[in-house]
Design a protein around this nucleic acid. Structure first.
Lengths: 223, 223
DNA sequence: GCGAGGCTGACACCGCGCTGACACAACGTA
DNA sequence: TACGTTGTGTCAGCGCGGTGTCAGCCTCGC
């Protein structure tokens, strides 16, 4: 974990550094707004602790510029003045958390850890098998990175096959998953669906085991 | 946006509700820990405001149980006692933010909004995706910098889509977060809402994936 | 070579999603 | 209180995309 501590009071800066280091961060410090802005914009930090009262460039301005530039690292703001309107201002400028001086180092560290933990927990719901990639967020399908337009039903079929990509899935099971208890469909509906999908995806994606069912042709080539 | 306010003091609960509603949340309240635990575990909220002093089940316990169950919605904790050790305890239990009583409703709302935005990985009060810009303070919308007059409901729809601008949002989810548990509306209400919004914003902003839902058309047009 | 299971193109149908018109409630105003 | 205004849900209708059905062909396995 890399942390940047922006603080012009040398004593507080020292305390900050040692506290963060004790919590496992690699700490870099800087003492004025211009330098902070440059560092935060050009380098990658897992956390920034930002004092608002800074020489050369105000902390709030620095923060706003980072956010305007699309930098979204967690920023913990420190300020001497503790009025509520100040705090609202800081939060609206894009601060992730706020701590009024004076504060206990234990609390700062706890909040720092919480911020980092939270920002780490953002992942994509993208899964892939073989050449195929499904994006559950955008509901899109791609083969070798080339997007393929699929309908809702086709997507669900692919999703189920990918979920069980290591085995051959029986037509009955697929029908049940796609349509639930509604057995009004003929078995051919599934075959038509697979055919359309194959036309869109090209060969080598959906395989057939005659008499057993369908499977995703991925890493493991089934005879 | 759906918010749950857990607060046993009726007067504070009322104030909370109206403040959050004014900020565009659909608010549900409950007054004891058991009910809060159940609601937070079974339903989907964009934000939970949690008082620690609760009858039947302590707020901290409720929070820990949610986290243990893998529920990761943003939780803003309120407490009467403002000692720093208390705060550390709350944060370690999984709180995303902390506000000691007494507090200003303005600050609570600012923090609430910040939490919600942050949970989607974004910073400031002004957020944009593609050509669209939302200002959470003024509740205004602009396309390419040109302001567009939208109603409260339209704004909330856009806000939710922008919060989840990377994914396709199902109609059911939109209905739930726009109206809460009130299922009196026909699905067509949403379609009408989207239609009106599209007329105001012009084409190329709100996209449809037939069978899936709606999404914000940003830089990336889907395949 | 035969038969059954699987594939495919054509087609029809259905329902999803869009739209304009209307109804009605909430609100401000004269 | 009566009246416009505004916001929003409801309704009916419609176009079209998605999907099931069908008939016929292909192909695998014996």
């Amino acid at each position: 974990m890399r942390a940047l501590a922006v603080e012009d009071d040398a004593r507080i800066a020292t305390d900050l550094t040692s506290a963060l280091q004790a919590a496992g961060f690699v700490v870099q410090t800087c003492a004025d707004g211009e330098a902070a802005w440059f560092l935060g914009d050009t380098e990658d930090f897992d956390l920034i602790v930002l004092d608002l009262g800074l020489p050369r460039l105000d902390g709030l301005t620095v923060l706003k510029r980072w956010r305007a530039a699309g930098r979204d690292m967690p920023v913990l703001v420190l300020t001497a003045r503790g009025t509520w309107s100040e705090r609202v201002e800081g939060i609206d400028a894009g601060a992730d958390d706020y701590l009024p001086k004076p504060f206990r180092m234990e609390e700062l560290v706890a909040r720092a850890r919480a911020l980092v933990r939270r920002s780490a927990g953002r992942g994509g719901a993208v899964q892939s098998a073989g050449e195929l990639t499904l994006d559950a967020n955008r509901m899109t399908v791609a083969r070798r990175g080339v997007p393929v337009a699929v309908t809702a039903l086709e997507y669900r079929l692919l999703g189920y096959l990918m979920l069980h990509h290591a085995r051959v899935v029986a037509p009955g099971e697929l029908l049940e998953h796609l349509y639930g208890d509604d057995f009004s469909r003929e078995a051919n509906a599934l075959e038509a669906l697979v055919a359309r999908l194959r036309r869109k995806l090209g060969p080598g994606i959906i395989g057939t085991r005659r008499g057993f069912g369908y499977f995703l042709q991925g890493a493991e080539a089934q005879g």
